[in-house]
Computed example of a mutant assay.
Amino acid sequence: MYIRRPRSLTRAKIIFATIVGIFGGVYIWKPLLREELSKKKAEQPEIAIEFAEEGKSVKSSLWHQHLLIYNMKRSGLFNIINSHPALILATGLLFTGGMIFSYRKLIRPVLVEQKYREAQDYAEYLFNEEFKQKVANKSDS
């Protein structure tokens, strides 16, 4: 289904409203995200101790990379994405973009073709009925 937009609502206005909405959402959710991030940072020393106890050296410059790899092995990709607010936002944007792309490139062409086929069948039916009526009128005369 196609939703028509008013002529006064330009693409630039829609993009501006989208950007303002995203920043508004970030502003509103920032305290919750900070709280979650502080919880994750509080959990990191325990993980680093466990990582060091396994006999692997932890260098200060590569500490975050090792910790990230260890977390990925330990808890899976889903928990890694949930541990970083930027990754949550990026995942949401990628998912939304994928849905829009799949609708525009895969679903909508099939629906449009089906709509045209139905319209063509209906027009053919009307043409045949009209033709039958003309033939019937000529035979009656």
Rank of each mutant, 00 (worst) to 15 (best):
Y2Q: 13
R5D: 03
S8W: 14
S8M: 10
L9D: 03
L9V: 09
R11T: 10
R11K: 07
A12Q: 09
G21M: 08
G24S: 07
G24E: 08
G25W: 05
V26C: 10
L33H: 04
S38W: 07
K41N: 13
Q44F: 09
P45C: 01
I49H: 03
E50N: 15
E50Q: 15
F51V: 03
E54C: 02
S57D: 09
S60I: 14
L62T: 13
H64F: 04
Q65P: 00
H66Y: 10
L67H: 05
L68A: 14
Y70S: 13
N71I: 02
K73T: 05
R74A: 13
S75W: 11
I80P: 01
P85V: 06
P85K: 00
P85M: 03
I88T: 12
G92L: 12
L93E: 04
L93V: 12
L94D: 02
F95M: 12
T96V: 11
T96Q: 03
G97V: 04
M99F: 10
M99L: 15
F101D: 09
F101S: 13
Y103Q: 04
V110C: 08
V110R: 12
Q114Y: 02
Q114F: 02
Q114P: 00
Q120A: 14
Q120P: 00
A123T: 05
E129D: 08
Q133S: 12
K134F: 08
K134V: 06
V135C: 05
K138Q: 12
S139Y: 13
D140C: 10
D140R: 15
D140Y: 14
S141P: 08
